[in-house]
């Protein structure tokens, strides 16, 4: 058997453990197909398949640790299984898949909910830290031009928590039921240029974020009574960025 066929076959059998035809499209003769059929029945293959599965689940679980820790076991396992069945969790750089996995989870959570807030919190932390290592503040001079277009920073996020964070952490640690959502949200702004990646924004900074639901010009923002003094630090820390 050619090396590429062997590797593709073995790799697929391990990656697509729940597929009905993982060897589809591989150029195998009858003996080679028989080899893979026999291989799947060996204790060594089954052991390796179990390791592969548990490592993939473990990597995914690490990338969404806090969100998953708030979920009932059955729901948590179902999400992990669905994610791994899609072929994910295989990269040892699990952070690289972390944002995608958190997006996948967030689409299945109630809005608003504590679980969704924590999911957004994890996503925001990951996104800002991914941007932080190579972040450089832009030239602020284009803010003087009212036609300059701005948008939300690609590594920034705004997160609303509906519970004191210390109570959320306690619930994660003790697995106690979460209290009802508070009527007032604690708002956190994540930006790659902030030393701690996160701060509590002012009302005006929140207004900028909300206004940039879609890209907008500096002139448009100024017409909403947002001051240039508010825009400059947001641009400098990567909460917002030039859209051009």
């Amino acid at each position: 058997m050619a090396l590429i066929e062997f590797q593709t076959g073995l790799g697929r059998l391990l990656r697509e453990q729940r597929s009905s035809d993982p060897l589809h499209g591989i150029n195998l003769d009858a003996n080679e197909k028989q080899y893979f059929e026999t291989l799947q029945d060996t204790a060594g293959f089954r052991f390796c398949a179990g390791i592969q599965r548990s490592w993939c689940v473990g990597r995914a679980a690490k990338s969404a640790h806090f969100t998953l820790s708030l979920m009932p076991d059955q729901e948590r396992q179902a999400l992990l299984d669905e994610w791994v069945d899609s072929g994910a969790g295989t990269s040892s750089f699990f952070d690289a898949e972390g944002e995608s996995f958190l997006s996948f989870i967030s689409n299945r959570l109630t809005d608003p909910s504590h679980e969704l807030s924590v999911c957004h919190f994890e996503q925001a932390t990951l996104r800002a830290s991914n941007g932080a290592s190579s972040y450089a503040s832009p030239d602020l001079s284009a803010l003087a031009n009212v036609d300059s277009k701005l948008r939300r920073g690609r590594h920034a996020a705004l997160v609303r928590l509906y519970l004191d964070p210390s109570l959320l952490i306690e619930s994660m640690q003790t697995r106690k039921p979460l209290p009802p959502l508070s009527s007032e949200a604690l708002v956190l702004m994540f930006s790659p240029g902030l030393p701690q990646l996160c701060n509590m924004p002012s009302e005006e900074e929140i207004a900028v974020w909300e206004a940039l639901d879609a890209p907008a010009s500096v002139g448009t923002l100024l017409s909403l009574n947002i001051s240039p003094e508010t825009l400059a630090p947001l641009l400098e820390q990567g909460t917002i960025e030039y859209a051009d």
């Binding site: 090396l3 590797q7 073995l10 390796c48 390791i51 490592w55």
Partner: peptide
């Protein structure tokens, strides 16, 4: 595609 585990060469 990552397989998710290291595998031996034949």
């Amino acid at each position: 595609l990552q397989v998710g585990v290291p595998l031996p060469m034949p």
